[in-house]
């Protein structure tokens, strides 16, 4: 777990082939709206990005360098204040360069009624680009 995940107390609570589940404990420091006490979207983004990346590593069968290309989150309903948020990610397709991930965020036992639906893509940055165009200084 990286420094930022540790700062948010994000832990892995489940794994399977091509799948990872992470938990974000509710924390008052992460509130986005003091009136409703709902968590800020940024904390959910971190949770979902982390779970999504972990599902790619599971699919790859071990640690390899990857980088998030894009990440979309749809907020289907408001998170309940005081409750932990879980995210389960599924890496459903991997090509030579790119991994594709779907995930949901939800409260424990409420997987059928998620808070967030997300999709993400990752670059497999450890892959050499022999077939690609010459690498310019820009593309680092």
């Amino acid at each position: 777990m990286s420094r930022h995940n540790a700062a948010l107390d994000i832990t892995m609570v489940g794994r399977a082939e091509a799948q990872a589940t992470m938990r974000l404990p509710y924390n008052e420091k992460l509130i986005g709206n003091p009136s409703t006490r709902v968590l800020h979207g940024g904390a959910i983004t971190t949770l979902v990005d982390t779970a999504s990346g972990a599902s790619v590593i599971m699919k790859l069968g071990g640690p390899q360098p990857i980088a998030t290309l894009d990440l979309r989150l749809d907020y289907l309903k408001r998170a309940t204040p005081g409750e932990d948020v879980l995210a389960t990610a599924d890496c459903y397709r991997i090509s030579r360069n790119i991994a594709f991930v779907r995930s949901i965020a939800y409260h424990e036992g409420e997987q059928d009624s998620p808070i967030v639906a997300s999709s993400a893509t990752f670059m497999l940055t450890g892959v050499s680009s022999k077939a690609g165009p010459p690498k310019s200084e820009e593309s680092q």
Partner: peptide, 16 residues
Amino acid sequence: IGNPSLPALHGGSLGA
């Protein structure tokens, strides 16, 4: 930090 070996900021830090 999200990636200690580069090092690079976490995607969630930038999202925030």
